[in-house]
Design a protein around this nucleic acid. Structure first.
Length: 303
DNA sequence: AAGGCGGTCAACCGCCGGGAT
DNA sequence: CATCCCGGCGGTTGACCGCCT
């Protein structure tokens, strides 16, 4: 059997907190600390769920919280971090002392996303809206692509338009200390891909349709990425981090082009590294779909 | 003065991973 | 090993407020 339930949900109060409730919660946390939220309502004399108490405390009553407006520096940092992390509000809030994830999330949804749109920047991809429209249009009417690539492994990266902000993503990751400095070859790859905006479809090589496996890195690239990323992720996240792209190097090089193999590769890598948050980041960032398969290897996501 | 409307933000909901039993 | 709950998270809701007509 597991633990007993945290609270009697039929007998808990919901809705806005009263000053009396705040005082009780503050009095309790100041003397007993914040552990074991399950017991907090009972011991503090509150008819609230422990979860509600925790939320109230962390978002409003916690000491050292800033309640004033966001500064320009905080605003810039949020935008930068959102470009890197997507809607990982807790991670973003960790970089902003005195701010909660709820604060950051609300500020983004109510202010910053609108500001970006007014400046002609898509708040999801952080790319110029005009650039996005151009990309969409190019995809919709893309003619058959000549220019076959001699190396199939890099074909996917050159097939789709390069994202406008790969350098922002990469630099910001390293600047924030989330990833260690990239090895020299990665910077070269970034520059090469940004410069190479001439589309060349892998499908055009043999007149085939694009495969799932075309989005998997080749073995040679994966080998280095595997070691680098593993080390980096352990250092940065205590074992966290992983790349879906280099993940099934066995299946990637083997020409297994169905969706199941692709997904298996993702899952294998995920299990191997022990974390999947970076995958979630990738999935949350459409720029990487539109950009290239090499984006994640540039960031050191190899396993 | 009153109703509509949009912005803000506290709080809730539901999901997930990890840990306790 | 299986079950179940806790804590944390992101998404969403709804109350409140100010502005406009």
């Amino acid at each position: 059997m597991g633990r007993p339930p945290c609270c009697d949900k039929a007998n808990v109060k919901k809705g806005p907190w009263t000053p009396e409730e705040d005082a009780k919660l503050l009095a309790y946390t100041s003397t007993h600390g914040t552990g074991n939220w399950t017991n907090v309502p009972q011991r503090a004399g509150l008819k609230r769920c422990g979860k509600s108490c925790r939320l109230r405390y962390t978002n409003y009553l916690r000491p050292n919280l800033k309640h004033e407006n966001f500064t320009q520096e905080e605003e810039d940092l949020i935008v930068t971090l959102h470009a890197m992390l997507g809607s990982r509000w807790s991670l973003i809030a960790n970089q902003l002392p005195g701010r909660t994830d709820n604060d950051v999330k609300n500020y983004w949804n109510t202010k910053l996303s609108k500001k970006l749109r007014q400046r002609g920047i898509d708040p999801i991809t952080h790319r110029p809206i005009a650039d996005l429209m151009h990309s969409i249009g190019a995809l919709a009417i893309r003619p058959p692509q000549p220019a076959p690539s001699p190396n199939g492994s890099s074909s996917a990266s050159s097939y789709l338009p390069a994202p406008a902000l790969p350098l922002v993503h990469d630099v910001a990751y390293h600047a924030a200390g989330i990833l260690p400095p990239p090895p020299p070859h990665q910077q070269q790859v970034v520059i090469a891909r940004v410069d190479a905006d001439a589309p060349a479809s892998p499908a055009a090589d043999h007149g085939q349709q694009l495969k799932w496996s075309d989005f998997l890195a080749d073995d040679a690239a994966a080998a280095f990425e595997a070691q680098y990323h593993h080390d980096a992720s352990v250092a940065a996240h205590g074992g966290g981090g992983g790349s879906i792209l280099a993940a099934g190097s066995s299946s990637a090089g083997g020409g297994d082009d169905d969706a199941a193999a692709f997904i298996d590769a993702i899952l294998d890598c995920d299990k191997e590294t022990g974390v999947d948050q970076l995958i979630a980041e990738l999935l949350a960032d459409p720029a990487y779909y539109a950009g290239s398969s090499s984006s994640s290897s540039e960031m050191g996501w190899g396993c």
